[in-house]
Computed example of a mutant assay.
Amino acid sequence: AMGAMANAQGTMNNLTFGNRQYQYYETICSGSPAGRMNSGRGFAGTSGVHTHMTNSRLTDPEVLELRFPVVLEDFHIREGSGGKGKWNAGDGTERTIRFLE
Rank of each mutant, 00 (worst) to 15 (best):
R95C: 11
H76N: 06
G90W: 02
I97R: 01
E62S: 14
S81Y: 02
L66K: 15
S81G: 06
I28W: 00
M53E: 13
A44Y: 06
I97K: 00
F68Q: 00
Y25N: 07
T51H: 05
S81C: 07
T51P: 04
E73D: 12
R95Y: 13
G92F: 02
T46E: 13
T96Y: 14
G48H: 03
P33V: 04
Q23K: 06
Q23H: 12
T16R: 09
E101H: 11
D74I: 03
F75I: 03
P33F: 05
V71H: 15
N55Q: 13
G18V: 03
F17T: 01
L64R: 02
G40L: 08
N13Q: 08
R98F: 15
S32D: 03
H50Q: 12
R36A: 03
G40T: 02
L100Q: 14
D74E: 14
V70I: 14
G90D: 01
G31A: 07
T51A: 05
G3K: 10
A8C: 12
E101R: 09
R57G: 12
G83T: 14
V63S: 10
F17I: 07
Y25K: 08
T46D: 07
G92C: 05
H50D: 05
G18N: 06
K84N: 13
L15V: 11
M37V: 01
R41P: 06
M37A: 10
G35V: 01
Y24N: 01
W87A: 07
T51K: 00
L100V: 08
T46L: 15
T11Y: 10
